[in-house]
C-alpha cells in the first residue's frame, strides 16, 4: 500500500479519522482470482475512498463496513466469503462473517479493518509551572495538547515546546470556540488557580462533552468555586463532574509529581478504574514531608 500510505499519513497528520481495509489472509483453494495479499482500500470521512481490494462488489461491501468503523473507531478482522472466482462471473462478496483466522468454508478473504482515530485531546488552561509539566506527561501518553492562557508573556512556545498548540486567549472564550470539537475521550484541566478565571473556564468546560474536567486548588478553594458555579446556574450533575482537587493522592509536591497525579486520574477515569482521587479524600492535599 505504498501509494495509499501517503493518503493515510496525510489524514493522520491532519487529525482526520481514516480507515485502512487491507487483505491480510486468503483461504480456500483456489483462492479468488483477484485476491492479492496487501490489497488496500482507504476510507476517510473527508472524501471518496481510494484503492481497491481487487473486486468492485467486494469493495462496496468492505467500504460500508469501513464507514461504520470510521464512526465507531473500532478495529478488527473481518472475513468475507467470495464466489464467482475463476468461473468467469464477477466475484462478489457475500455477507461478511466476523471471526478469527482459522475457520473457513469456501474461498474467503480476511480483511483487517483498521480505524485510526485522532489522538485524544487535553486542553490545559493556565500557563503555570504545573502546566508545563502536565504538557510533557500528557504528550508521553499520546494526547494532543493545547495550552491556553490570556497572558501573552506566559502562553509562549518557548515555555511549552512540547504543546501541539499554544493559544493566547481567555480560557473560557477559547473553550467556547472549540466546544463542538471536544469528545468524551478528551480532558480539560483548569489550572488557572484563580476564581475569576477558574469559574468561567469551568462553566465553559462543563458545557462541552469532554469526559474529564479537573480543577487545581485546595478543598477550600473548590468549595468556594462550587458556590460560584451554583450562582452561575450550573447544574449539580455538572458540578459533580469536576475532579477537584485535581489528581489522585500520590503524596507528591513538585509540578512533575502533580502532573503525574493528574494524568493518573485521567487514565483511571477513562478506563473506569477506581483510584484514590484527591476529590474523594479529606484534609489537606499536601501532607507534611517526612523528616
Amino acid at each position: 500500500m505504498t501509494e495509499l500510505f501517503d493518503q493515510v499519513r496525510e489524514r493522520v497528520r491532519r487529525n482526520v479519522p481514516v480507515v485502512i481495509a487491507t487483505v491480510v489472509g486468503l483461504d480456500g483453494s483456489p483462492p479468488p482470482s483477484f485476491a492479492r495479499l496487501g490489497a488496500t482500500l482507504v476510507v476517510a470521512g473527508d472524501g471518496p475512498s481510494a484503492g481497491s481490494l481487487g473486486d468492485d462488489a467486494l469493495d462496496r461491501v468492505v467500504e460500508a463496513d469501513a464507514r461504520r468503523a470510521l464512526l465507531s473507531g473500532s478495529s478488527g478482522l473481518r472475513r468475507y466469503a467470495v464466489h464467482g472466482a475463476g468461473d468467469g462471473r464477477p466475484a462478489a462478496a457475500a455477507e461478511p462473517e466476523s471471526g478469527g483466522l482459522t475457520e473457513a468454508s469456501g474461498p474467503t478473504l480476511a480483511v483487517f479493518i483498521h480505524a485510526i482515530e485522532p489522538p485524544p485531546r487535553m486542553i490545559v488552561l493556565g500557563a503555570a509551572d504545573v502546566s508545563a509539566a502536565l504538557v510533557r506527561v500528557a504528550k508521553v501518553l499520546g494526547f494532543r495538547v493545547t495550552v491556553c492562557d490570556a497572558r501573552p508573556a506566559f502562553a509562549t512556545r518557548t515555555r511549552f515546546p512540547d504543546a501541539d498548540d499554544v493559544v493566547v486567549d481567555w480560557p473560557h472564550r477559547h473553550l467556547a470556540a472549540i466546544a463542538d470539537e471536544l469528545e468524551p475521550c478528551d480532558a480539560v484541566c483548569v489550572l488557572t488557580h484563580d476564581a475569576k478565571f477558574d469559574v468561567p473556564a469551568l462553566v465553559a468546560a462543563l458545557a462541552t462533552r469532554a469526559g474529564y474536567v479537573g480543577a487545581l486548588g485546595s478543598r477550600r478553594t473548590h468549595a468556594d468555586r462550587v458556590a460560584r458555579l451554583r450562582a452561575e446556574g450550573v447544574a449539580e450533575t455538572d458540578i459533580a463532574r469536576v475532579m477537584a482537587p485535581i489528581g489522585i493522592d500520590l503524596g507528591g509536591r513538585t509540578p512533575a509529581e502533580t502532573a503525574l497525579s493528574i494524568c493518573a486520574e485521567i487514565v483511571a477515569n477513562f478506563s473506569g478504574t477506581p483510584v484514590a482521587s484527591l476529590r474523594d479524600g479529606s484534609g489537606p492535599i499536601h501532607r507534611p514531608t517526612r523528616a
Partner: peptide
C-alpha cells in the same frame, strides 16, 4: 515495513491497530 497487529487472543497489552 509497516507492522500492524490485526488480532490478539488471550492477554496482550496492544490491541488490533
Amino acid at each position: 515495513a509497516l507492522v500492524r497487529v490485526v488480532a490478539v487472543e488471550g492477554s496482550g497489552p496492544a490491541g488490533p491497530g
